[in-house]
């Protein structure tokens, strides 16, 4: 796919840490509205790829474009987030000494400057949106609770809620099902599918059952570059993928 009509466009991206190549000529394209699952063994470069897209790590070489025109390698985390890329971390990261509601309020799409927030008064529309999100992530009764007191799964959901509150064009979701029960995992998959209706989503996940339940195109990363791409059935039939996952 050409750069111009892509949402996210990575071409020949390489990153190395003290000689270790975390990403090696990685190329990947996400279309607007697409949902993509990314799998790969440990050390395949999944998290580093997220770091590159969100501006945490600068690539040594290669191009990263958002919306076909915006060069992400020149932007920092804050402006990339403002451009409309939201990220959920592998380890659920919420603001533990804030309440659930405050966590969502902080994430809510609004001007991000210090003076804007200093004089910010919460509007009726914002209240409605917060209520909607609280319902969606099923934390309505816990809105006044400190985030620190939530269970692991609830924190994952709160973080997804925060991601939605940002209203990003593209969501990067790192292992959303980690540490969840089977039922929670299934619910999370449903939630993500809902979200994918009006957002582009990139999901990194280990759990094959979860990936299968998403039913989307899968990209397999290995040693910092793309090994295979296609439906889950297609890639699981690929000999190299089997070899990478099972060892030779």
């Amino acid at each position: 796919m050409a750069r111009s009509n892509s949402l996210l466009y990575l071409d020949g991206v390489s990153v190395s840490f003290d000689g270790f190549k975390a990403l090696n000529e990685l190329s990947l394209t996400i279309a607007p509205g697409e949902m993509r699952a990314i799998i790969g063994p440990n050390g395949a470069g999944k998290t580093t790829m997220m770091d590159v897209i969100t501006g945490k790590t600068r690539p040594d070489s290669g191009e990263v474009y958002f919306n076909g025109t915006v060069d992400l390698t020149g932007e920092d985390e804050a402006s990339i987030a403002e451009l409309g890329i939201g990220r959920k971390f592998q380890k659920p990261t919420v603001f533990e000494s804030h309440t659930v509601l405050d966590n969502l309020e902080l994430a809510l799409k609004a001007p991000r400057g210090p003076f804007a927030t200093l004089f910010h008064v919460i509007a009726q529309s914002e209240k409605k949106r917060l209520d909607y999100l609280l319902d969606l992530i099923r934390l309505g009764p816990k809105r006044g609770e400190l985030a620190a007191n939530l269970s692991h799964g609830q924190k994952q959901w709160l973080e997804i809620g925060m991601l939605l509150a940002q209203d990003p064009k593209l969501l990067l979701v790192d292992e959303p099902a980690a540490g969840m029960t089977d039922a929670e995992t299934a619910e999370t998959a449903e939630l993500l599918k809902d979200i994918a209706n009006d957002h582009s989503v990139v999901v990194v996940e280990h759990d094959m059952v979860f990936v299968r339940s998403l039913g989307v195109k899968v990209t397999v990363l290995h040693e910092g570059s793309v090994l295979a791409e296609g439906s889950l059935d297609h890639v699981s039939a690929d000999e190299r993928v089997v070899e990478v996952y099972l060892g030779r």
């Binding site: 920092d76 804050a78 987030a81 990220r87 990261t93 902080l106 994430a107 400057g113 940002q166």
Partner: peptide, 8 residues
């Protein structure tokens, strides 16, 4: 995390 929410 705050940075990734878009706060500078």
């Amino acid at each position: 995390r705050t940075r990734f929410l878009g706060y500078r």
